[in-house]
Design a protein around this nucleic acid. Structure first.
Length: 262
DNA sequence: CGGCATGTTTCGCC
DNA sequence: AGGCGAAACATGCC
């Protein structure tokens, strides 16, 4: 579930905790750095922002990074801004919790309140970080310009799909959104990055700025033309009806339309 | 049982 | 040095 769009949704919802003092923290030590609990407890949350796919919580001390891996989710004050889609049949098991963070605010209302922030991640590929260095990230996917994309690509020769997934090239794009953007831009995912014309680069940037906000408003990465259902079925192209192609590119499954993506 | 999954990181080879 | 692909990581689901 978690790509940049999901991180954006969680970041917006988590504005609710700005200004609160962190009263108590529990975390799964297997996904957190040493000292995570000590560094965060007692701090005041000053800002919540997004860097690529990471939700960053700035406090008056350290900054806490929440990365969600493949299956992580976030609940704010007991409410999940994104309802679970995958693992729909399974429950929200407490043993999958990786972070529980209570604030003084919660304690004032009731001792049994839900944590202000709760991260749940069955597959445990997500990570918690302390003062993470996120300076290597490329330009953000939601506002990507053609100049930024050109600079990010450099002289890379890999498939454009692989390049778009490289967070140093563009920050926040995941497997679904990369396919979605290429679908709308009309560029085949296997095209070598250095073979794209300026027009194609511009088209990819334009589609990032146009269709990603639309996906965001619709609820996230899974709400595009190439929804998980369409992807797994690999049926007809939603645009022109041609049979969709499905193939691993750079270790990830790519879905595209060989007719209108060239 | 085999294969697949919305993501990084690491290793080895140019 | 840096680009690149494959493997590793961890676990649930179909």
């Amino acid at each position: 579930m978690p790509e940049g769009l999901e991180a954006e949704i969680w970041t917006r919802a988590a504005q609710a905790v700005v200004g609160r003092e962190i009263a108590k923290v529990w975390c799964d030590e297997r996904v957190a750095p040493l000292g995570f609990v000590e560094s965060s407890t007692g701090a005041t949350i000053e800002k919540v922002r997004r860097c690529g796919k990471v939700v960053v919580i700035d406090t008056d001390g350290s900054s806490l990074g929440l990365h969600f891996g493949m299956t992580g989710r976030l609940e704010i004050d007991g409410t999940a801004p994104i309802p679970r889609l995958e693992y729909a049949s399974g429950r929200d098991r407490a043993e999958w919790d990786r972070l529980r963070l209570w604030t003084v605010h919660d304690h004032q209302t009731s001792l049994s309140t839900a944590p202000a922030l709760r991260m749940n991640d069955p597959r445990r590929l997500g990570k918690l970080t302390l003062d993470a260095d996120l300076s290597g990230l490329g330009a953000d996917c939601l506002t990507l310009t053609s100049d930024e994309l050109t600079a990010g690509l450099g002289r890379r020769r890999v498939a454009i799909k692989s390049a778009l997934l490289d967070q140093r090239v563009v920050a926040g794009l995941g497997n679904l959104c990369a396919d979605e953007v290429l679908f709308h831009a009309g560029v085949a995912p296997r095209r070598p990055a250095d073979s794209l014309t300026p027009e194609e680069i511009e088209s990819i940037g334009a589609q990032c700025r146009r269709c990603l906000p639309r996906l965001l408003a619709a609820g996230g990465s899974t709400h595009g033309e190439l929804s998980p259902e369409v992807r797994s079925a690999a049926g007809p192209c939603p645009l022109d009806g041609a049979p969709l192609a499905r193939m691993a590119i750079g270790g990830r499954t790519a879905v595209w339309c060989p007719t209108h993506q060239r």
